[in-house]
Design a protein around this nucleic acid. Structure first.
Lengths: 339, 339
DNA sequence: TTTAAGTACGAAACCGTTTTCGTGTTAAAA
DNA sequence: TTTTAACACGAAAACGGTTTCGTACTTAAA
């Protein structure tokens, strides 16, 4: 690769010192107008751009925000990222995106890599494996150092920090209320294992709505999907017993879409026999048949907020720190044909 | 933020020189065993990690690969990224992902930012606006500098460079053949405007299959979607005329899913009245009703190949350069219910 | 006793910038 | 004619590491 021009080569070429070049490029009037013009013309001609590593090292800031997400193929996270990017971009920050693949070890590696000077702040959505283990020492170390860090969506329970979350409990509650308002009485839920905090919260809200209405969910109408086993089979159990639900809430879009297909295959009509409601703001819900009612999550907003928070932390002075904040992104119901 | 320990602070604390610390940390036997042990213990205790900016500046390599994609919310690109990440990770590279938002200006900004020392190589899928304009000077400058750069999916036409592409033409051809093999004679296509190279190629392959069979596509059965107008209306035109097609190929998954819904709303049965085939490897096709036959693109493979190519270029010596390569990722048909 | 070879460490340069602090020259003021 | 100020520029340190080259000291061989 051909070497790029740098300040030294320009200086040598023009017979001046590096300091002069540096100043001339910033149009400092410490330097004579003629020299300034020569340097600037030369720089433009050779398309000089300052080396950002050197700048970062010198200025002790990189203008980069690190983002660690579990999976990039999850549509929700890409929405969040585009929200982060939107705000970061406005404030001249760039993004360094890393994937933990839901693994504890990779998450630690990513954090170590990013916090060795590469980024000014960090945005994290925690890996499932970390959540399962319940080990958050790697986060606590950073928080003690007062490294700017904001958690979003999947947050560490019981740890003081800046957080941006979806109001999952309220979303689940509203989903339950909606089904009830449609006259559904035999409700079912497709959920996730314990350690997935967002799933648990959505389920909790759903049960709150139901208990308020004095209705009960039969144990066999509560399916907790284990992704390592066949998902279709697990869902199918909802429709193969003597009784079947007439309204189903799934804690994410994919489970809801799958459940709709399986129900239809079993001969049920949607929404006449069974109503369905999903959770997320993905691309799937408006393309299913019938189209799916969902609790919209507004991932883009979440990204905006998270980026704003972390940038605020980065600019904060050592002396006046504001206390940790938790921003809640509210959901709303998008009603379509499935209810 | 509390300052992190660095080599200097360790040196001062232990009463040795920075060089000694540096060597001790690498277990150089230039340093006495006792000193080595003291330094290493101290470093471990204070969780010392070398500053990566300093390392990059010194070593003239960052171990980072830049990736520029038009949109992160496109599922295909996330598959490619996860493929890139897989290979990069194995070879100790990290990713810096930037979004051009399909804008020419942002693409240029991203490139300038990334090539000022931040990354060792670049992976690019070109913005639509750039493709429309046909201005590739910013790429050519980099190529002339022999900066390691690999284009994927959306490539600059007529420019010598390393490229990884999907065999779009063959995919379109196979889609056409499949519809014909199902006895369909009145074929339609939902495509994209001229400048979207991948759409054009898929269309070209489709027409080749059709011409080989001696069939013709009526002009009104060729819809080129303009995203700035209402997409549903544009698609609907296929089903509101005297004649209607009995087999439709859409150059992406979303258009195909939309078209299926619209056709069903118009009372057509799929696949009896009309067969549908889409293009991509997204999450939608197995969740539509009926499930959708598609040409699978294998974005993950594309990411693998692109990463391998660029890393190969990075390691390449100044003297023995290999000629530019174009890797073609072949597609395959995934047949589902819509045909 | 002198010389040679290890051993254990430090000084300094370098990567590409910025910035502070001189310093030599010229022109204006005293 | 001397002092002062303005002007135009350069030297050097700093950011946080690595690495080459010395060098002082010890020990073994001549």
């Amino acid at each position: 690769m051909h070497k790029k021009v740098n300040i030294k080569t320009i200086a040598a070429e023009l017979g001046v010192s590096p300091s002069t070049v540096s100043k001339a490029l910033k149009d400092s009037h410490e330097i004579g107008v003629e020299t300034r013009a020569r340097v600037q013309a030369f720089a433009k001609m050779y398309n000089y751009k300052p080396n950002s590593l050197a700048l970062s090292l010198r200025n002790q800031k990189t203008m980069v925000i690190g983002v660690i997400i579990p999976q990039i193929t999850h549509h929700f996270f890409t929405r969040v990222i585009s929200g982060i990017e939107f705000v970061a971009n406005q404030k001249d920050y760039n993004l360094m995106i890393c994937l933990s693949k839901d693994e504890y070890e990779k998450e630690i590696q990513n954090i170590e890599m990013l916090t060795n000077g590469s980024v000014d702040g960090l945005l994290i959505s925690i890996a499932n494996e970390t959540l399962e283990k319940g080990e958050f020492g790697h986060f606590e170390r950073l928080l003690n150092q007062e490294f700017p860090i904001v958690f979003f969506d999947r947050i560490p329970p019981g740890i003081q920090a800046d957080k941006v979350i979806v109001d999952d409990e309220a979303g689940g509650y509203n989903a339950g209320k909606l089904l009830l308002s449609k006259g559904r009485k035999k409700l079912g839920i497709i959920s996730t294992p314990e350690h997935v905090t967002v799933g648990v919260l959505r389920e909790k809200g759903f049960y709150r709505a139901i208990q308020e209405a004095g209705v009960e969910v039969l144990p066999q109408f509560n399916v907790k999907i284990e992704e390592k086993f066949d998902i279709d089979n697990q869902i199918d159990q909802l429709f193969t017993q003597k009784e079947f639900p007439d309204g189903i809430f799934a804690v994410n879009e994919t489970y809801a879409a799958l459940a709709m297909k399986i129900a239809q295959k079993r001969g049920f009509h949607i929404p006449r026999d069974i109503a369905f409601i999903g959770f997320t703001d993905g691309v799937i819900s408006r393309l299913t048949t019938p189209t799916m009612t969902t609790i919209a999550q507004h991932g883009h907003n979440m990204g905006n907020k998270a980026a704003e928070l972390v940038i605020q932390r980065i600019y904060e002075q050592e002396n006046d720190k504001t206390p940790y904040q938790t921003v809640v992104i509210s959901t709303n119901i998008v009603e379509r044909e499935s209810t």
